[in-house]
Amino acid sequence: MNRKKTNYVSWFLGAALLCGVLWVVTRYSLPSLLEWQSPFLSRCFFVLMVCFGLCLIRLLRGPTPADRAVAVDTLGILIVGFCAILSIPTGRDWYLDIAIAWALQSFIGALALAKYLEGRGFDE
């Protein structure tokens, strides 16, 4: 019973923190380096930044190497979406070329990380 209570409290704190961050990010369109015409997309951009932050927390805290590998893989997929969002307001289509190349390299990187993880276990 006690455990459940603390569970609720931490859940509530986490949800409040995340909602607060998202509110700040979406309430004020923060000044950005690119002078964008579209405030909506600049907010999308900062929401993706929050996702990156969550991935980085896992990357720093992850107890095992496998956790870090998963976080890196997730970051790779997120960056593809990031490039796609960047390509809309700036009107530069080559961001999508970067997205395709990044998807390829993140896939190959994930496979290489998996191979590395497999190699660690052979200790007989």
């Binding site: 590998a69 893989d73 395709i100 390829l104 497999e118």
Partner: peptide, 26 residues
Amino acid sequence: LCSIFLILTAPVAAHALARGAHISGV
């Protein structure tokens, strides 16, 4: 094309990572 590529490759990468994690003894 990029979305099709992601749908095809992301599960394969996840499978490889899960297998690697299990073999490395997590």
